[in-house]
Every structure is written in C-alpha cells, then in structure tokens.
Design a protein around this nucleic acid. Structure first.
Lengths: 230, 230
DNA sequence: GCGACTTTGTGCATGGCTTCACAAGTGCGT
DNA sequence: ACGCACTTGTGAAGCCATGCACAAAGTCGC
C-alpha cells in the first residue's frame, strides 16, 4: 500500500493530464460492450501514440496482460482510483452569468465523478433565484459548504474583474482546488491549485496557426520548394 | 521580411500557447495607463518566470530595450501580429444548447480579435430561432460561410455523440481550425488543427491532486518523515 | 508440452523546453 | 565624460517527455 502511494506520487503531470482521456475512451469501449483492448486500440481512441499510452499506464502499475491487452473494466477502475474518482467530489460554481448557468446545466459532471452541490453569486439581487434544481446562494455560504459538505473544488465563472475577489473568498473558506474560467491570472497561496480554461486563448492559438498557414500560401508563389507540409 | 517569417515559423508551441496570456496582461497594463514594463513585472502578471517570458519574446524579435523594459503598446502590437490578430477572424459556433448559447453571448470574443459571424445547429427545429443578434442557421450554410465570409474557425459546442459528424461537416466545408468543447477525440485530416476544451478533464486533474493531498494527510499519522512538501 | 505469435512493460536515445547565469546594451546622476 | 545600476537577450546546462526497440510474458493451436 505504501508502494501504491509511492507509485502514485511519481506520476508525471503530463501523464496525469492524459488519464482523463483514457478513462473516457475506456467508457466508450465499455458502452459498446467491448471487454478488452490493446494499447494500440486504446491509444488511437484517445488520440495518442501507443508507446505513450503504455508508459503512462505503467506509472499506475501493471494492469495489462502481455499478448492480450487490457481489460476495460479493470483499467477503468484503476485509472478512476488513481484520479481519485472513486468518490464523488462536491463542486460549487460561482458566478451565475451565461457561462455559470451553462455549466450548472451541464450533465457531464455527474457521470464523471463530480456533483454540483451549490451555485453562488456575489450579486445579492441574484441570490435566491432558481438555476435548474439549485437556488443561487450568497458568497458567505462558502464556509459552511466546506465545513458541512466537504466542498473541495470551486469553479469560477465570473467576469475577469471579480475573479480574484472570488478566488480570495474560496481560499479563505478552505478551498484548495480552483477551476478558473475567467480570462485572468489568479494570485493564490502555493498550496492552492488553479487550472484555467480560456476559450479566447485557445482561439488565439488557432489563429496563430491559421495565419501562419495562409502566410505561407502567399509566399508559395515565389518558393514552393521549402517544405510546406507540417 | 523573409527573416520575419522564418523567425515566426520557429516559435515553439509552448511559447505560442503563452503569448495570449502576455497579450492579456499587456492589455491590463495599458488600461491602467502603464506605458512600460520590465520582463519581471510582465512575467508576474502573466504567471510565468521572467526568464521564460524573455525567451518567449525573443522568438518574436528584439522588441525590448536593455536597462528599460518593454513598451506596452509596441509589445502588444508585436504579439498581436505574431498571433495573427491584426485582422478579425470570423468564427462560427455549432450547437446551440446551453453551452453554445453561452458562448454566443460571450462578449470576450470581439475584444480579442474574433467575430462570431454565425451560429448553427443540426436540429432543423432550432433553425431560425434567435440567439442574441443571430438566427440559428442550418449546417448546409457552412459552405457559403467559408466561401463568402472567409470563415476559418469553427467552434463545436454539441454533445459528444454528434461532434464527429459536425467536425466532418466543417472539414468538408473547408474549415481547418476547430475548437472542440465536446468531450471526445475528433478524427480529422492532418492539415486540420483541433484544440480541445474540456472542463471534466480539468476537474479530474484537480481531483487527482486533491486526492493525493488528502491521501498523504491520512498517512501522516504513521509517517510524517517522508517529505510531504511538494 | 511446445513453438509461433501477440502484446505489454521498459531501458535507452533523442529532442524540446526550462532554468541559470552573464555579457551586452541603455539611462541616469554626477 | 564616466561609472553605476538596471534590464534585456542568449549561450549553456539540466530536466522532462517522447519515441524506439526489444526482452519478458502470456495465449493459442496442435
């Protein structure tokens, strides 16, 4: 068991970031009634190379069978355990604008080990309004949610200018994992983990490649010789 | 100019992924009336190390002044140019569920170089309905949007089970940059770039670290000796 | 049983990214 | 004019992740 923990401690971040993808692919296989997959099949379904997949899985332990592959149910369980999804994590969403409401209505949480236990907003005028099955609660409720309902993960869906304030609130209430949808950098203590989701950033990265592509096409008149591929 | 392009070609992906963050931080500085920043200040605002920032910027060219720092406006312009944001990119959002509507209503696009020119849905019953300033259009309009309005970027906001179908439609219409919000892997030709945004994945990564943290706390009773930090 | 075949798990080499450390260049005060 | 304080840009070193190639280990057919 201590070996278990020791193994888990050493999983590289890059591997951890891919585990959810494997889990999702495995769920698809299970739904299609497939009981066993090779690293090649699973890797293709998850969009990675089979060597990478095997190395990633080797960090969890040795759950495959040589010559055969991986049992879908078993591997799903092991990855779920590694990710800490054997329990349901209570999540609170803060900021009930368009995005917050969309997130609150998103059904994908429940099937993936998360449970939205509360939605909150800083705006007193919104408090009490219904959002799906929830009623919007005031920020002051955060402390009770952490204490009584073991809230551990906060989702910030506010505009950028109030995100830091909300983050401070979450941190002082004891939340140490934050998913930030606001397009800004949050300043939090070292022991608080923040992950950011920003569609503008993603679009800008796409724009870079799109522009580079069209830029090269313009130049192709004078030199088609340079490798355009890749 | 060819040196310019050559320089731009060589920007590492990791650097490109950080440029939007720098641009955003610079915009903040500009709004606060700050005309000049050091790499240290900008790096802190963007949440990276100053060495990394300087190396990233060095890939664009030499736009700083030793002993002084970077002029905010100038650097903003250079990064915008590198990212291809001097023009506005036409974007279409496909899938008008909760998420699609939230994205369509998101005001952050316009200020960051993107312009939602159309929203679409596969469901014929939804076609024609109003979403903000837009009316939902049928998938068949994609070809015309690419041809007449230079649509280059598609945003998939459908459930996972129709994402691949939508992606195929986008690709055959000529779109080569896709932002995918559906929790699945898309199979597209090599010259099509897909970036994925998946909040479930992000939450699962947070859960991993949260679980590891609490797991170690549980064990701390028997052995506080092992380095708990980091 | 046994040999042929399949697939995992992993040591090793490779490449890319990050960090360090410092020379080169700039402004300022005197 | 000159030295001092400051900051950029960049070679060099170290680190992490990826890809390769193969031995180990299992199945299947006979």
């Amino acid at each position: 068991m201590s070996a278990d923990v020791a193994a888990r401690r050493g999983i590289p971040d890059a591997s951890v970031a891919r585990l959810p993808g494997y889990l999702q692919a495995l769920t698809n296989f299970a739904e299609r009634g497939i009981g066993s997959v090779s690293s090649e099949e699973l890797a293709t379904a998850a969009g990675v190379s089979s060597a990478k997949l095997r190395k990633d899985l080797s960090h969890l332990g040795s759950y495959g069978v040589r010559g055969v592959g991986y049992e879908v149910d078993r591997l799903s369980y092991e990855i779920s355990t590694a990710l800490g999804l054997t329990q349901d994590w209570p999540v609170a969403i803060i900021g009930m604008g368009n995005l917050g409401r969309a997130l609150a209505a998103y059904s994908g949480f429940a099937t993936r080990g998360f449970n939205v236990i509360a939605v909150l907003d800083r705006d007193a005028d919104l408090v009490g309004a219904a959002v799906g099955e929830h009623r919007i609660r005031p920020m002051g409720d955060l402390g009770a949610l952490v204490r009584d309902d073991r809230l551990a993960i906060g989702v910030i869906a506010t505009p950028a200018d109030s995100a830091q304030e909300v983050a401070d609130h979450l941190v002082s209430a004891g939340v140490r994992s934050i998913l930030n949808f606001a397009p800004c950098v949050l300043d939090v203590p070292d022991d608080v983990m923040v992950r950011k989701v920003d569609m503008s950033t993603e679009l800008q990265i796409l724009a870079f490649h799109e522009q580079r592509r069209t830029g090269e096409l313009d130049l192709s008149a004078q030199s088609t010789v340079e490798g355009v591929a890749l």
